[in-house]
Structure formats: C-alpha cells, structure tokens
Design a protein around this nucleic acid. Structure first.
Length: 419
RNA sequence: CGGAGAGUGGUGUAACGGCUAACAUGCCCGCUUUGGGAGCGGGUGAUUCCGGGUUCGAAUCCCGGCUCUCCGACCA
C-alpha cells in the first residue's frame, strides 16, 4: 500500500493523560481510535495486525479439529435463565436492552449457553462425539472499570472454542491438545518466550483452570513462575495445597506481574446438564456431554504485543508474523530518479506478494523515519540520492538495528525479507 | 463501586475573578528545503464539557450532572 493513500496518520503528540503504553503507541501510530472508555475502533493498520493474529489462531484451531462458526451477539434471555446466568452474580456484566415488542435481550459476554443450546439440535449420539466448534466474536462486558488500553475493554474480540466429549478422559486428551495449540499460537505471534501456562482458579466453572500468562509489568495479574519448568501459579490459588499438587516448591518460584492472554476451562457437565445436551451411548444409555471452553483475546493480544515490543513511547518493532506489513519502503527526496526507482521496486515486490508499505509522501527524512519507527514494521528499505549513487538500496533489520547495502534485485530482496 | 486527579481550537498545553482566551503542534496557500519530526511569510481553527448559582464582571469561585485518567475492590 502506498502511504500517501493510507487514511490514517501518525501523531506527534501523546495522549496527554497518563494512559497505558499500549494505548499510547497504538493510538499514535494510527492502529486504533478510542471511541470511549474501554471501546476501540480498529483502523486499517490495526485491523491488518488483528487479522494476522486471528489468522494464526485460526490455523492452530483448525489443526486440532476445531470447526469455525459464528454465534449471534444478541441473546435471548431464556437460555441463560436455564443456566442461571441471566441474573444473579452475572447480572452486572450484561449490556441489556429490550425489543420493541417488549422482550429483553442482552449482548453476549460469553457463549457457553447459546453454543450448548445450538448443539442440542446437532449432537445426540456417541457417533457425533468428540467434536469442537469455535468462533471469533465481539464480546460485550459491562466492566466496572475499563483500563490499560486494549488490555481491559468493554467490547473486545475473542476466539472461543467449545469442546464436546463423551467422558472426562476423552475431554482431557483434547484439553491437552488445545493447550499445546495455545503455546504454538503464542510462540508464533512473538509471545512464546514470555508466556507461561499457569495454574489458576476455575472461576464459576470448576475448581481450577489453566491460564496462559504473559509476563508484563503493566499486567493486572500476579503469578509465581518457574522459569525452567515454564509453568506458573496464579496468586489466587497460591497455596501449599496447590503447590504440592502441581509439584512446585516456593523457593524456586519468582513473583511477577503478568497479563492473562488465554484461559482454558474444563466445564464438565455444568452446561450440558442445565441445557439438556445429552447423547446416547452404544448401550442405549443417555449421558450429558462432557464439555470444555477455551478462550483467547486477539484484541488484547494486540495490546500485549505492542507493549512488549515497544521501545519507549515513540517506537515499536513488531514481530514479522503480526506486523501490518512486512516491509516499509521509504523513498527520500523528491528527485525523479529516486521516486522512479522506489516505485519500480515497490511494483516488483508487490508482484512477488511481499506485503509492503511504500512511503511515497513528500515529507522530510526525519518525519518519515520517525513515522516508520512508530509504526513498527520490522524491515525497512531506504532509497535516496545517496543510495542511488551506488545503484543500491539500504536495508535495515529493525530487530537487530543492523543496516546493509543491497543491489536492487527484487528476488534477492525477497530472500532477505524472509530469511 | 470506594478514593484521587482532570475536562480550554483537530492534538498537547497556558491564562491572579478583569483588555479581542495565549503558545506550540496540526491543517491550508506561497517560497525554500530533503538521511532523523527543517526554515521564512501568510492563513484556518474555540459557545473554555453541560446546567444552575455568586459577582459590576467567571475558563477561573460555589452547587449539580456527564465524561476521561489513575489507585483500590471486582474480573465469568
């Protein structure tokens, strides 16, 4: 994409308020726009990054047999009344409204109930099991306090997968496969080294669950981690009993702040019993389906990545796999030779399906570099009168900060970018 | 939901109860410039969050509301 065509702009000035670093960077770089507290619009650059994250999650969910679908955001209270989550403790999390005809509706903040209800119409035999479905959905939660930029919002994108198994053993096998898929996801999006599988409370679903926590100073969770074993225990279940169960010793653990980037739960028959999701086995007996749910928040991940890959308030270097573009091609100066050379290289790289943002704007070198630092594209090529003298281009690997001169050979360039 | 702070051109800030609300940045025009947010000149842009009150006079003080940020509680 030519940068002169890009609708959004970077901004030089900060947000003024003492906001989270992820919001500061993503707003300034033109990835997101704040609509209101805890509500963000995803702009072209931000959406490209979000879609990259979503794409990786989709591949990994498909790889473990998940089938993508899309549940509705608008919810009929009746199914939630069956599970007891329309009022009661869950009351305050709902955004509610009403139909013109008078009935109540709510905006879904999770989807255990509707997915269970829906599957009632499609799963009834042991032959239908095991199976799993998932979706990417905007969730609405009436948080008492939105905070930390994209890390805690009232409207956010979530991947939620629901597994159905015949029994606990079958469930556990899938649960572990999904845990493995989660670790691959975090690895691929650049959070592998800093993310730990974490023993945690199961909330309303079960006694315990597994969280995936990324070490982050601005995170709102406290965990105790064992770096060598790559596991951690959430503060909320940090007891002698739990430590013994997990096989950890207090003296080996390190206390750190972290952000929850994923959470997987064993639901058991909590919802299948409440909503009558039953199956008939080989001998003709009926049993409730054994379920699990597995969540991951792509929009939150975007905030975590921005924050972790930031370098002060003016600069990010995003991982290749999630950056909105792989290459930032910068033409310096208005001379026609430079513009032509850059434009030709841009076309050649487009032909080779390299995703490139071409800064063809008539701006000073300083502005272009400052913008490029902020936008965070990991590879940069500069073409200027200076580079033209030798007939070469200057390549900067922003991860290492190393620059090198190269011939303007598009195929060689592709090798360089995907090395 | 408790506590603290803050709402002023698009953005970031300034202004003792007293002149036409100032400065920077952005944006537009012209010239100049092109390897780290360059320079000069001209221009654009505000119902000072909303509603009441005090006062000769309110961005400024008082009351109420709304919004935002941070700390805490909460976090399926």
């Amino acid at each position: 994409m030519k940068q002169s065509f890009l609708v959004t702009k970077t901004r030089k000035e900060g947000l003024g308020e003492d906001t989270a670093i992820n919001a500061e960077l993503l707003v300034r770089a033109g990835y997101v726009h704040k609509t209101m507290a805890g509500v963000y619009t995803f702009l072209p650059l931000g959406l490209r990054m979000l879609n990259n994250i979503v794409g990786i999650i989709r591949e990994e969910m498909d790889a473990i047999g998940g089938q993508e679908m899309h549940l509705s955001a608008l919810q009929n209270p009746s199914v939630w009344q069956e599970s007891g989550r329309w009022g009661g403790d869950a009351e305050s999390v709902w955004f509610r409204s009403s139909l013109q005809s008078g009935g109540d509706v709510g905006l879904a903040w999770t989807h255990e109930e509707p997915v269970t209800e829906m599957l009632r119409h499609h799963v009834s035999s042991y032959r239908d099991l095991p199976c799993s479905v998932y979706q990417f959905q905007t969730k609405f939660r009436n948080e008492e306090r939105a905070k930390s930029g994209l890390l805690r919002t009232r409207e956010f994108l979530m991947k939620d997968l629901y597994s159905l198994s015949r029994n606990e053993e079958e469930h556990k096998a899938f649960y572990e496969r999904c845990a493995g898929a989660y670790l691959r996801i975090f690895d691929r999006i650049g959070l592998g080294d800093s993310t730990y599988r974490t023993f945690a409370s199961g909330g309303a679903f079960s006694q315990f669950s597994d969280e995936f926590q990324t070490v982050l100073a601005s995170g709102e969770d406290t965990i105790y981690l064992h770096r060598e074993k790559r596991i951690a225990v959430n503060e909320e279940v940090y007891t002698d009993e739990v430590l013994e169960k997990v096989g950890l010793d207090r003296s080996d653990l390190e206390q750190v702040q972290s952000c929850e980037v994923g959470n997987i739960f064993t639901l058991g028959t909590r919802f299948s019993e409440a909503l009558n999701l039953l199956y008939t086995d080989e001998s003709g007996d009926t049993s409730p389906v054994f379920m699990g749910s597995y969540g991951i928040g792509p929009s939150r991940l975007m905030g975590v990545i921005a924050e972790q890959y930031s370098d002060g308030e003016q600069s990010m270097v995003l991982p290749d796999a999630v950056a909105p573009f792989r290459l930032h091609l910068i033409a310096l100066g208005a001379s026609s030779q430079v513009q032509e050379a850059a434009s030709t290289l841009y076309d050649r790289l487009q032909d080779r399906e390299v995703s490139v943002l071409f800064d063809d704007r008539d701006l000073s070198a300083g502005e272009k570099f400052a913008d490029s630092d902020l936008v965070g594209i990991p590879h940069r090529i500069v073409i200027s009168d200076r580079t033209q003298e030798s007939g070469q281009v200057e390549y900067l690997d922003r991860k290492t900060g190393k620059t090198s001169m190269h011939k303007t050979d598009p195929d060689g360039m592709v090798k360089l970018l995907y090395a």
